[in-house]
């Protein structure tokens, strides 16, 4: 079990779920009308889950991930992560929470172009004040695990899309978060590369016990998820579990 998981378990003592979304609504005002990106959503995720949040565009997948990642505040309701309410965190507290608990993987990789793959992967770990030696060991081990040790010092523009996304996965995991939120991580990749990346993430999830939540409408991701939360019009339309073999 990782350090982060231990801490999360400790904080969540007395709580049943790692992530508990309770009656959350997120309303955006557009002129005189209100748009419900999330409409009274209640859902929970346990530690170590590999879940796909599926649904058409505008169904509220990304908003749900943003709310869980303390990037956005719910208009109503509460989100608890490891027993801690994160719905009303300030900017600084939210950043500190994400740094310690959440890793992000984005559709467009979102690597910093001026840093090498290694430096990108190391960035969040360096913010955690981990010693340089430990940082290097941790990041290089992960880069090696995703097959990028040889290309660690290349800049993002010298890497393929799949390689950049693998660096992004390493960045998300290097800080040893309890949760990884991946927003359509395969959308910019071809089918084969997407599959390979998903297999890799699944393996890493097993190794590290990290909770993975994907927003996606990619069948490749949905096929590999153990649980599929389907969303429509800001609400949970279905919550399905499927066997590992599926």
């Amino acid at each position: 079990m990782t350090e982060t998981k231990k801490r999360a378990a400790g904080e969540g003592r007395g709580q049943d779920h790692l992530i508990d979304v309770r009656g959350v609504s997120r309303v955006y005002e557009q002129g005189l009308s209100k748009v419900y990106a999330l409409d009274d959503v209640s859902v929970h995720f346990d530690s170590g889950e590999f879940t796909a949040i599926a649904g058409p565009s505008g169904s509220g997948k990304t908003t749900l991930l943003n709310v869980i990642g303390a990037l956005d505040r719910p208009t109503k309701g509460d989100v608890r992560v490891a027993g801690r309410s994160i719905g009303s965190l300030g900017k600084s507290e939210g950043a500190a929470f994400r740094l310690q608990n959440v890793g992000f993987v984005f559709q467009a990789y979102n690597l910093l172009p001026v840093l090498s793959g290694y430096e990108n992967a190391e960035f969040t770990v360096s913010l955690q004040k981990v010693s340089p030696k430990q940082r290097r060991e941790r990041v290089m081990a992960l880069l090696d695990r995703v097959g990028l040790a040889e290309k660690a010092h290349r800049r993002p523009n010298e890497l393929s899309g799949g390689e950049q996304q693998r660096v992004a996965v390493v960045r998300a995991l290097a800080s040893r978060p309890s949760i990884v939120l991946a927003d359509e991580p395969t959308a910019n990749l071809d089918h084969k590369t997407g599959e390979a990346l998903l297999d890799l993430m699944l393996e890493l999830q097993r190794e590290h016990g990290t909770t993975f939540l994907f927003s996606t409408h990619d069948p490749v991701v949905i096929d590999r998820a153990r649980r599929i939360v389907r969303m429509d019009s800001g609400q949970i339309a279905a919550d399905e579990r499927q066997s590992e073999a599926a």
């Binding site: 600084s92 950043a95 500190a96 994400r98 740094l99 984005f106 969040t124």
Partner: peptide, 15 residues
């Protein structure tokens, strides 16, 4: 967008 990304990754506003 990059500065937003840094915020998402956990870089605080004053950092």
């Amino acid at each position: 967008r990059e500065l937003g990304l840094l915020g998402a990754l956990g870089l605080g506003p004053w950092a």
